[in-house]
Design a protein around this nucleic acid. Structure first.
Lengths: 189, 189
DNA sequence: TTAAACTTTCACTAATTTCTGAAACTTCAA
DNA sequence: TTGAAGTTTCAGAAATTAGTGAAAGTTTAA
């Protein structure tokens, strides 16, 4: 089968870069390249086209597509009259970024939170363990805060995030007024 | 040399876990273990003690310490009357987390932002490239927002983050009032 | 049903990353 | 200055992770 994939220089450098970065973002090179290719391409593309465009084995493409689907970053699109699957991004850039973020949280934070909760139940047996547990508690609290906060941001969506962002340094000052604004929520400080 | 490192079960499981997670956080297993050991230990410890406690080669410890120092997560502490270096965490948990975050941003976001800026300067040569560039622009804007926002949070510090957190869902509502709170730029801040 | 078109699996190879340990280097008390 | 105590470097070994491609498995138009 002959592919009709373009891969102009612009696309190529983006795809290659996403491949390089892929490993830092939680997947491997080819998976990163595949994601870029699908996200940047105007039309849905097939597994075979991906294999041709990236010059990687068909089997590898199949694995990669499975992984991208498990991350919920791509989905198949039914093209009437076509037997094979066509792939497209599974949402807007904001949604995709959110999913990557969520998935990474699941891998990078959740297991630690779970372990920390367990370890904090133990009774320290000496001064050194007491100190260790104290530190673990701090880590636990920090991770919980970050987790909760990031969830908050996700529900806000990109526009509100932007508004918040432009507020910039004044966020700190706003906090001082919060009691006037939201009377019910009196936070101890 | 005989080590006096404890490594009770509690410490051991924490250290092992941080080792496993290490690779997901941007460093490798032994570096993760070393960081945990230093962070959890009440007293400053030496390179040799680390090597003994973790049962890894002295050379590996030296490399790892260098890396942890380059991340600014640990520092040496001078112990009077002692020739060798003693290592301690380079700040509070919040500070350490910030540094990890910062360093990861440098590795995971900055290079992409830089490439995207370049690619967006090119003139698209066809409809597909036009679409690709449009997508790249969205990614660029998202990364910029996230970058700026995370910087904002860092300056807030953990207590204010917590306050903001407890505000929770009402953040959205606060945004609607922001104009009343933070009037035009004419007012002194 | 059948068989062509397509996908998935998996044992193996390739590439990359991590770790070791011996040798070279540094520091400082005597 | 010497040498004991300590540190760093780095070539190669070990371990891990990624990628291939052939064979087995699916699906569906005819």
């Amino acid at each position: 089968m002959v592919s009709n994939m373009k891969m102009t220089p612009l696309i190529t450098s983006a795809v290659m870069h996403f491949g390089e970065m892929g490993s830092r973002w939680g997947f491997n090179r080819t998976v990163g390249q595949m994601l870029a290719l699908i996200a940047l391409n105007e039309d849905p593309i097939t597994a075979q086209e991906i294999a041709d465009a990236l010059n990687i084995s068909r089997g590898n493409v199949s694995m990669g597509l499975k992984e991208l689907q498990s991350w919920r970053l791509i989905k198949t699109q039914i093209v009437p009259g076509e037997r094979k699957d066509f792939f497209v991004p599974a949402g807007s850039i904001w949604e995709l970024a959110n999913r990557v973020f969520e998935e990474r949280k699941k891998r990078e934070i959740d297991p630690t939170l779970s372990l920390l909760r367990d370890l904090l139940l133990d009774t320290p047996s000496n001064s050194n363990e007491e100190h260790a547990q104290q530190t673990l508690a701090e880590i636990h609290d920090l991770l919980e805060s970050v987790t909760a906060w990031s969830q908050e941001l996700q529900t806000l969506g990109p526009e509100k995030l932007n508004t918040l962002m432009k507020l910039g340094a004044s966020v700190g000052r706003i906090l001082e007024f919060k009691d006037k604004l939201v009377p019910g929520k009196t936070t101890a400080n």
